[in-house]
Design a protein around this nucleic acid. Structure first.
Lengths: 133, 133
DNA sequence: TATTGACCCCGTAGCGGCTACAGGGTCTAG
DNA sequence: CTAGACCCTGTAGCCGCTACGGGGTCAATA
Protein backbone atom coordinates (compact mmCIF):
# COMPACT_ATOMS: atom_id res chain seq x y z
CA UNK A 1 0.00 0.00 0.00
CA UNK A 2 1.37 3.38 -1.06
CA UNK A 3 2.25 6.12 1.40
CA UNK A 4 -0.32 8.90 1.24
CA UNK A 5 0.30 12.54 2.00
CA UNK A 6 -1.39 12.02 5.35
CA UNK A 7 0.96 9.17 6.26
CA UNK A 8 3.95 11.25 5.25
CA UNK A 9 2.69 14.17 7.29
CA UNK A 10 2.09 12.04 10.38
CA UNK A 11 5.48 10.37 10.06
CA UNK A 12 7.28 13.70 10.04
CA UNK A 13 5.09 15.80 12.30
CA UNK A 14 4.04 18.05 9.44
CA UNK A 15 0.60 19.22 8.38
CA UNK A 16 -0.76 17.96 5.10
CA UNK A 17 -1.17 21.54 3.87
CA UNK A 18 2.46 22.20 4.64
CA UNK A 19 3.59 19.19 2.63
CA UNK A 20 1.60 20.49 -0.35
CA UNK A 21 3.10 23.92 0.26
CA UNK A 22 6.62 22.47 0.17
CA UNK A 23 5.78 20.78 -3.10
CA UNK A 24 4.40 24.02 -4.52
CA UNK A 25 7.56 25.96 -3.70
CA UNK A 26 9.76 23.17 -5.02
CA UNK A 27 11.27 21.87 -1.77
CA UNK A 28 9.65 18.48 -2.30
CA UNK A 29 9.46 16.82 -5.72
CA UNK A 30 6.14 16.42 -7.53
CA UNK A 31 5.19 12.84 -6.61
CA UNK A 32 3.45 10.30 -8.81
CA UNK A 33 -0.32 9.95 -8.41
CA UNK A 34 -2.54 6.96 -7.86
CA UNK A 35 -5.40 6.22 -10.22
CA UNK A 36 -7.62 8.28 -7.97
CA UNK A 37 -5.21 11.20 -8.17
CA UNK A 38 -3.76 10.79 -4.69
CA UNK A 39 -0.09 11.69 -4.17
CA UNK A 40 2.05 8.59 -3.62
CA UNK A 41 5.31 8.81 -1.72
CA UNK A 42 8.31 6.56 -1.13
CA UNK A 43 11.21 6.36 1.31
CA UNK A 44 13.22 9.08 -0.45
CA UNK A 45 10.49 11.65 0.08
CA UNK A 46 10.15 10.65 3.71
CA UNK A 47 13.89 11.17 4.20
CA UNK A 48 13.80 14.47 2.36
CA UNK A 49 10.87 15.80 4.37
CA UNK A 50 12.50 14.67 7.62
CA UNK A 51 15.58 16.62 6.64
CA UNK A 52 13.50 19.70 5.85
CA UNK A 53 11.63 19.48 9.14
CA UNK A 54 14.77 19.10 11.16
CA UNK A 55 16.46 22.03 9.44
CA UNK A 56 13.35 24.17 9.87
CA UNK A 57 13.16 23.23 13.55
CA UNK A 58 16.74 24.46 13.85
CA UNK A 59 15.58 27.77 12.45
CA UNK A 60 17.03 27.62 8.95
CA UNK A 61 15.02 29.63 6.46
CA UNK A 62 13.29 27.96 3.53
CA UNK A 63 15.96 29.31 1.19
CA UNK A 64 18.72 27.99 3.44
CA UNK A 65 17.02 24.61 3.53
CA UNK A 66 16.77 24.67 -0.25
CA UNK A 67 20.50 25.36 -0.46
CA UNK A 68 21.32 22.66 2.08
CA UNK A 69 19.27 20.13 0.13
CA UNK A 70 20.98 21.01 -3.14
CA UNK A 71 24.42 20.80 -1.53
CA UNK A 72 23.69 17.56 0.24
CA UNK A 73 22.55 15.97 -3.01
CA UNK A 74 26.10 16.25 -4.34
CA UNK A 75 27.76 13.63 -2.15
CA UNK A 76 31.16 14.19 -3.77
CA UNK A 77 31.07 17.97 -3.30
CA UNK A 78 32.89 19.97 -0.67
CA UNK A 79 31.03 20.50 2.57
CA UNK A 80 32.51 23.97 3.12
CA UNK A 81 29.38 25.67 1.75
CA UNK A 82 27.24 23.66 4.12
CA UNK A 83 29.45 24.70 7.01
CA UNK A 84 29.14 28.31 5.94
CA UNK A 85 25.34 28.25 5.86
CA UNK A 86 25.28 26.70 9.31
CA UNK A 87 27.69 29.25 10.73
CA UNK A 88 25.78 32.14 9.16
CA UNK A 89 22.65 30.85 10.78
CA UNK A 90 24.34 30.40 14.14
CA UNK A 91 25.54 34.00 13.99
CA UNK A 92 21.98 35.09 13.28
CA UNK A 93 20.73 33.11 16.26
CA UNK A 94 23.38 34.69 18.49
CA UNK A 95 22.33 38.12 17.30
CA UNK A 96 18.68 37.40 18.04
CA UNK A 97 19.61 36.12 21.48
CA UNK A 98 21.51 39.30 22.25
CA UNK A 99 18.61 41.44 21.00
CA UNK A 100 16.14 39.49 23.05
CA UNK A 101 18.26 39.75 26.19
CA UNK A 102 18.52 43.51 25.76
CA UNK A 103 14.79 43.65 25.26
CA UNK A 104 14.13 41.63 28.38
CA UNK A 105 16.38 43.95 30.37
CA UNK A 106 14.49 47.01 29.14
CA UNK A 107 11.13 45.39 29.64
CA UNK A 108 11.99 44.47 33.21
CA UNK A 109 13.11 48.02 33.85
CA UNK A 110 9.78 49.26 32.53
CA UNK A 111 7.83 46.88 34.69
CA UNK A 112 9.56 47.53 38.01
CA UNK A 113 7.58 48.83 40.94
CA UNK A 114 4.10 48.97 39.49
CA UNK A 115 2.04 48.07 42.55
CA UNK A 116 -1.40 48.95 41.33
CA UNK A 117 -3.07 52.30 41.70
CA UNK A 118 -4.24 54.82 39.11
CA UNK A 119 -3.07 54.81 35.52
CA UNK A 120 -1.99 58.43 36.00
CA UNK A 121 0.74 57.23 38.38
CA UNK A 122 1.62 54.06 36.49
CA UNK A 123 5.33 53.77 35.91
CA UNK A 124 4.84 51.51 32.93
CA UNK A 125 2.90 54.15 31.03
CA UNK A 126 5.42 56.74 32.14
CA UNK A 127 8.26 54.63 30.85
CA UNK A 128 6.52 54.07 27.56
CA UNK A 129 5.83 57.74 26.96
CA UNK A 130 9.24 59.37 27.37
CA UNK A 131 9.65 63.11 27.84
CA UNK A 132 11.05 63.54 24.34
CA UNK A 133 7.54 63.18 22.95
CA UNK B 1 3.50 75.70 9.88
CA UNK B 2 1.70 72.38 10.28
CA UNK B 3 3.46 69.09 10.98
CA UNK B 4 3.36 66.88 7.91
CA UNK B 5 3.40 63.11 7.91
CA UNK B 6 7.05 63.26 6.90
CA UNK B 7 7.95 65.45 9.90
CA UNK B 8 6.06 63.13 12.21
CA UNK B 9 7.80 60.13 10.73
CA UNK B 10 11.25 61.68 11.06
CA UNK B 11 10.58 62.80 14.62
CA UNK B 12 9.67 59.29 15.70
CA UNK B 13 11.95 57.19 13.51
CA UNK B 14 9.01 55.74 11.62
CA UNK B 15 8.45 55.38 7.89
CA UNK B 16 5.73 57.46 6.29
CA UNK B 17 4.03 54.32 5.01
CA UNK B 18 3.99 52.92 8.52
CA UNK B 19 2.31 56.05 9.88
CA UNK B 20 -0.42 55.68 7.23
CA UNK B 21 -0.66 51.99 8.11
CA UNK B 22 -1.18 52.84 11.80
CA UNK B 23 -3.91 55.25 10.80
CA UNK B 24 -5.55 52.63 8.61
CA UNK B 25 -5.67 50.07 11.41
CA UNK B 26 -6.89 52.67 13.89
CA UNK B 27 -3.82 53.02 16.11
CA UNK B 28 -3.48 56.66 15.13
CA UNK B 29 -6.50 58.97 14.75
CA UNK B 30 -7.55 60.25 11.35
CA UNK B 31 -5.91 63.69 11.23
CA UNK B 32 -7.30 66.88 9.72
CA UNK B 33 -6.15 67.74 6.19
CA UNK B 34 -4.71 70.91 4.71
CA UNK B 35 -6.32 72.57 1.68
CA UNK B 36 -4.05 70.46 -0.53
CA UNK B 37 -5.19 67.29 1.24
CA UNK B 38 -2.01 66.77 3.27
CA UNK B 39 -2.35 65.20 6.73
CA UNK B 40 -1.73 67.75 9.48
CA UNK B 41 -0.55 66.61 12.91
CA UNK B 42 -0.18 68.19 16.36
CA UNK B 43 1.67 67.42 19.58
CA UNK B 44 -0.85 64.80 20.72
CA UNK B 45 -0.25 62.67 17.65
CA UNK B 46 3.50 62.99 18.10
CA UNK B 47 3.19 61.77 21.68
CA UNK B 48 0.88 58.96 20.66
CA UNK B 49 3.17 57.76 17.88
CA UNK B 50 6.20 57.95 20.18
CA UNK B 51 4.34 55.76 22.64
CA UNK B 52 3.48 53.28 19.90
CA UNK B 53 7.06 53.16 18.62
CA UNK B 54 8.48 52.62 22.06
CA UNK B 55 6.03 49.85 22.85
CA UNK B 56 6.69 48.20 19.47
CA UNK B 57 10.43 48.43 20.07
CA UNK B 58 9.85 46.58 23.32
CA UNK B 59 8.18 43.85 21.32
CA UNK B 60 4.53 44.42 22.24
CA UNK B 61 2.17 43.29 19.50
CA UNK B 62 -0.05 45.76 17.68
CA UNK B 63 -3.04 44.47 19.65
CA UNK B 64 -1.19 44.85 22.93
CA UNK B 65 -0.22 48.38 21.96
CA UNK B 66 -3.84 49.11 21.13
CA UNK B 67 -4.88 47.86 24.57
CA UNK B 68 -2.13 49.84 26.30
CA UNK B 69 -3.21 53.00 24.51
CA UNK B 70 -6.84 52.50 25.48
CA UNK B 71 -5.91 51.80 29.09
CA UNK B 72 -3.52 54.72 29.31
CA UNK B 73 -6.21 57.07 28.06
CA UNK B 74 -8.21 56.43 31.22
CA UNK B 75 -5.97 58.27 33.67
CA UNK B 76 -8.26 57.47 36.62
CA UNK B 77 -8.41 53.76 35.85
CA UNK B 78 -6.55 51.00 37.60
CA UNK B 79 -3.14 50.17 36.19
CA UNK B 80 -3.45 46.47 37.02
CA UNK B 81 -4.46 45.63 33.45
CA UNK B 82 -1.41 47.47 32.14
CA UNK B 83 0.79 45.54 34.51
CA UNK B 84 -0.79 42.31 33.33
CA UNK B 85 -0.11 43.01 29.66
CA UNK B 86 3.49 43.86 30.44
CA UNK B 87 3.99 40.70 32.49
CA UNK B 88 2.36 38.56 29.84
CA UNK B 89 4.73 40.01 27.30
CA UNK B 90 7.74 39.50 29.56
CA UNK B 91 6.77 35.86 30.00
CA UNK B 92 6.59 35.53 26.23
CA UNK B 93 10.04 37.06 25.88
CA UNK B 94 11.43 34.67 28.47
CA UNK B 95 9.92 31.77 26.60
CA UNK B 96 11.46 32.90 23.34
CA UNK B 97 14.81 33.32 25.03
CA UNK B 98 14.69 29.79 26.38
CA UNK B 99 13.68 28.45 22.96
CA UNK B 100 16.46 30.34 21.26
CA UNK B 101 19.05 29.12 23.76
CA UNK B 102 17.97 25.52 23.23
CA UNK B 103 18.14 26.08 19.50
CA UNK B 104 21.64 27.53 19.75
CA UNK B 105 22.75 24.55 21.79
CA UNK B 106 21.42 22.14 19.17
CA UNK B 107 22.80 24.14 16.31
CA UNK B 108 26.26 24.19 17.87
CA UNK B 109 26.08 20.45 18.36
CA UNK B 110 25.21 20.04 14.71
CA UNK B 111 28.07 22.24 13.60
CA UNK B 112 30.87 20.66 15.65
CA UNK B 113 33.84 19.11 13.92
CA UNK B 114 33.04 19.84 10.32
CA UNK B 115 36.53 20.44 8.97
CA UNK B 116 35.82 20.36 5.28
CA UNK B 117 35.93 17.32 3.07
CA UNK B 118 33.26 15.60 1.04
CA UNK B 119 29.56 16.14 1.63
CA UNK B 120 29.17 12.40 2.05
CA UNK B 121 31.17 12.63 5.29
CA UNK B 122 29.73 15.93 6.47
CA UNK B 123 28.53 15.72 10.04
CA UNK B 124 26.12 18.58 9.54
CA UNK B 125 24.22 16.72 6.86
CA UNK B 126 24.36 13.59 8.97
CA UNK B 127 22.97 15.44 11.94
CA UNK B 128 20.18 16.91 9.87
CA UNK B 129 19.12 13.60 8.40
CA UNK B 130 18.63 11.40 11.47
CA UNK B 131 18.36 7.65 11.19
CA UNK B 132 14.63 7.71 11.97
CA UNK B 133 14.03 8.93 8.41
C1' DT C 1 8.61 81.67 -15.41
C1' DA C 2 9.85 77.08 -16.01
C1' DT C 3 11.63 73.31 -14.08
C1' DT C 4 13.65 70.40 -10.89
C1' DG C 5 13.31 67.56 -6.93
C1' DA C 6 11.39 66.62 -2.57
C1' DC C 7 7.52 65.92 -0.62
C1' DC C 8 2.41 64.40 -0.42
C1' DC C 9 -1.88 61.49 -1.98
C1' DC C 10 -4.23 56.71 -2.85
C1' DG C 11 -4.66 51.78 -3.61
C1' DT C 12 -2.80 47.46 -4.08
C1' DA C 13 0.49 43.73 -3.91
C1' DG C 14 4.33 41.56 -1.85
C1' DC C 15 7.38 39.49 1.96
C1' DG C 16 7.87 34.51 4.98
C1' DG C 17 5.94 30.42 6.18
C1' DC C 18 2.49 28.58 6.68
C1' DT C 19 -2.80 27.79 7.86
C1' DA C 20 -7.56 27.66 6.92
C1' DC C 21 -11.21 27.61 4.33
C1' DA C 22 -14.77 26.17 0.47
C1' DG C 23 -16.41 22.94 -2.45
C1' DG C 24 -15.66 19.04 -4.28
C1' DG C 25 -14.08 13.51 -4.94
C1' DT C 26 -12.76 8.71 -2.85
C1' DC C 27 -12.40 4.95 0.08
C1' DT C 28 -13.46 1.86 3.92
C1' DA C 29 -15.93 0.01 7.94
C1' DG C 30 -20.26 -1.13 9.92
C1' DC D 1 -25.83 2.46 2.02
C1' DT D 2 -24.23 5.76 4.59
C1' DA D 3 -21.06 8.03 7.71
C1' DG D 4 -16.72 9.64 8.42
C1' DA D 5 -12.02 9.99 7.38
C1' DC D 6 -9.28 10.88 4.09
C1' DC D 7 -7.81 13.07 -0.57
C1' DC D 8 -8.03 16.97 -4.36
C1' DT D 9 -7.70 22.16 -6.02
C1' DG D 10 -7.53 27.03 -5.48
C1' DT D 11 -7.66 31.02 -2.92
C1' DA D 12 -7.57 34.05 1.04
C1' DG D 13 -5.91 35.07 5.56
C1' DC D 14 -2.37 35.77 9.39
C1' DC D 15 1.45 39.73 11.15
C1' DG D 16 3.55 44.10 10.52
C1' DC D 17 4.96 46.38 7.65
C1' DT D 18 7.26 47.77 2.90
C1' DA D 19 7.28 48.83 -1.87
C1' DC D 20 5.31 50.08 -5.86
C1' DG D 21 2.75 52.65 -9.57
C1' DG D 22 0.68 56.68 -11.02
C1' DG D 23 -0.50 60.69 -9.83
C1' DG D 24 -0.70 65.93 -7.28
C1' DT D 25 1.81 69.94 -4.60
C1' DC D 26 5.21 73.05 -3.18
C1' DA D 27 9.62 75.66 -2.49
C1' DA D 28 13.89 76.96 -4.41
C1' DT D 29 16.65 77.81 -8.15
C1' DA D 30 18.19 79.05 -13.13
Amino acid sequence: MATTIGDLARATGTKVETVRYYERIGLLPVPPRTSSNYRSYGAAELARLSFIRRARDLGFSIEQVRALLTLSDDRQGDCASIDEIAHTHLAEVERKLADLKALRRELKAVITSCKGGAVADCRIIEALAPVRA
